[in-house]
Design a protein around this nucleic acid. Sequence first.
RNA 1: GGGCCGUUAGCUCAGUCGGUAGAGCACCUGCCUUUUAAGCAGGGAGUCGCUGGUUCGAGCCCAGCACGGCCUACCA
Length: 481
Amino acid sequence: MRANLESLRESGVDPYPRRFERSRLSREVVDDFDRLEGSEVTVAGRLMATRGHGKAGFADLVDEKGKMQLYVRRDEVGDEQFAVWKLLDVGDIVGARGEVFKTRSGEVSIKVKELTLLAKALLPLPEKWHGLKDKEIRYRRRYLDLISNEETRSVFRARSRIVHIMRDFLTERGFLEVETPILQPIYGGAFARAFETHHHSLDLKLYLRIADELYLKRLIVGGFERVFEIGKDFRNEGMDRTHSPEFTQLELYQAYADYNVMMETTESLFERLAFELTGGTSFTWQGREIDVKAPWKRVKVMEAVADAVGADALKSREALAAAARAADLDLGDPVGDELPGFGELVEKILSELVEPKLMEPTFLIDYPLEISPLAKQTPGDPTIVERFEVFIAGIELGNSFTELNDPDEQVRRLSAQVDKRAQGDEEAHGMDDDFIMALKHGMPPTGGLGIGVDRVVMLLTDSPGIRDVILFPAMRPERDK
RNA sequence: GGGCCGUUAGCUCAGUCGGUAGAGCACCUGCCUUUUAAGCAGGGAGUCGCUGGUUCGAGCCCAGCACGGCCUACCA
């Protein structure tokens, strides 16, 4: 390939020329053959196969939308261009001008009159009919995966559509799309370890956001009554099939709404997504049929826990811990002989015994207050907050609450978090005085919702893992070489 | 963090009992003006992930390390 490059240069061919005007995409030529037959078109793309025939040859030219065949004859292009043709390799980017025709075997082709090398490839493509299978190479060198695997291309086309649909859906409902800081002096809105960085000129420690929440609520205070943001959050934690250190989240806030409205919004959004992608309300994920037709099941957290470990276990923290141990749950390495809190125990039981079984779209609702420092209490029980998480196929897709807008109560909640952090809980919230000040100016009653966009894409593209829907997933750098 | 598996040509993969490293695709040369997984004939191509050990001899056995995959654990 390198040798061909040198030969081309010696014969005066620029292997990396500039702009090329093409008149048609390959798919247009194929689809509009009846109209275009006999006319001259100009196409461009990557050579994916060549078949030489002495003084003629065929090549498959692939562009973004499809593939078509070039037919190069020496008596048609002349000796000089035919010599160039002979020096082309599979993988090269070329442009071709010529007449549209059908071969004897019926394939729409271009009888090339002029062939232009647009970029010489110096490395070979993956093998042509087994494709590229090695997952490491597929993730590290995604461009090869995209060249080789149509399924990969279609996943990322679907991802783009899904994000567009989310945007359309919310914009139609009067939501304003905004962008809030990724670099934050105080992080909050979720329980997670943050990535740290440093701003030189401000000489300031900053964190990459773990959630958008606290800034979006400031905008609700500011009078934007419906806002949303689609952007990356960063959590410095483990990676697995459903967790990536950077991931895309949709967060939306709606003034004068509550978590019930957010549930309806979630249902409508998924119905819309499923309809746009499949024409119906159901789709298959990893062999499992999933129907997102509303209304979805709503299950109270405490009832789900009672179902899992028995109602008696809810009587006390000790009883719940005993029940969790009886169910073989690892309660972690207790610092001293401190038991996890009641809320943490509920969380543990949910994630181990309840959530993995939630195959049908399900809202788990009404969480313990102590694990929900930003949500408003239920009217009937001050230990429970109006919050839900939504699950499909055992995967958590979203989190929502009726937002806490009482600044004094918010201070008490964050103070409890600060105490936890002081005791070594790196994931607890810090106090955010500026956010509290905003609440003191009055935030209307508000419903908020966060949705993990990558996980939604996983489900709707039948992808097994989050890395399959992220173009360049985080990987340890390759050593050597 | 733990377990299992993998790492051989650019790619997809074989490699038997420890005895000179293989195939197909890709690449190069020749023939071939309607082929399409084109064909025919020939050719080049390797730090067998790395380091060490056992052995007369290691791709193969042993140990350590690196990277990856799957599972598991942790993780709003």
